[in-house]
Amino acid sequence: MNTSTVHAPIAPTAPTALTMRRGDPPVEAAIGGTRHAGTPEVVLDVRGLSVSYGDRVAVRGVDLRIARNQVTAVIGPSGCGKSTFLRSLNRMNDLVPACRVDGSVTFHGIDLYDPGVDPVEVRRRIGMVFQKPNPFPKSIYRNVAYGLKLAGIRDDLDGRVERALRQAGLWDEVAHRLGASALSLSGGQQQRLCIARALAVEPEVLLMDEPCSALDPIATAHIEELMSELARRLTIVIVTHNMQQAARASDRTAFFTTEVGADGLRTGVLVEVDATDHVFGNPADERTMHYVTGRFG
């Protein structure tokens, strides 16, 4: 169906109930997987994933494993279904009325699209940062505390908010004005606030859809630094149009492209996924090579 090649061996999914409570020992302690270890543990196992809007198939037949404590970059030309793919990883596609998802996305041994799974719980465990910074029109503090309050967490709110802001590298800039409106921040600060907001609920996976596309190079560098820092504790999937960013900041890269079928319909497919060095230095597929070297075929 597609030519995905997997070089690094990846261990099978660790079975953990999706109903795992907050505060349970981290899975990594039980399994022993850490960043850049020999066989990274698979957090999200995507098999035969197809997403359609109405009767138009946007992405077809994606097989992909996302390893724990790694940054996985998703690259590809515009419209190839990167955002669609990303949204299917935490069921944000449910919000699009006509959207249908086939195949399976396994998270700790549970298919996210199983009828018994609560999408709200899924999104609590798999956070998301959007392309455009979208802070709530509330104070900085209340933005970060928002997810905590939703989850019913009341103890040590201040400490949790501070930790999240520190992790997002924003604490020093906003510590003295936590009560100020989030909208008074600059674009880059707003995006880091959105990251802090997502981190506050301590997700295991963070999905980022072109988080730097609205930011200047300095703010972008800031967020890239942040990502490798964060990957020590969680798993990151980032969609980016910026080839250098993918090369710099990711461990693995998945390249998607658009295929035009015999009927003239365009569908997104996964071409290959591999260690980032491989994808950029020695891609297995010709289309990947053309894309990463800036030539389209």
């Binding site: 944000m92 919000l95 999104r123 956070g127 709530f136 939703l150």
Partner: peptide, 27 residues
């Protein structure tokens, strides 16, 4: 009230009505 605020609520593990009560109405 822009949709991206509703999406932000849901991406943080909020139910739709929680977004209405906590984000949409205040905004």
């Amino acid at each position: 009230v822009p949709d991206h605020l509703r999406h932000a609520n849901q991406a943080l593990g909020g139910r739709r009505w929680q977004g209405v009560v906590r984000v949409v109405i205040p905004a």
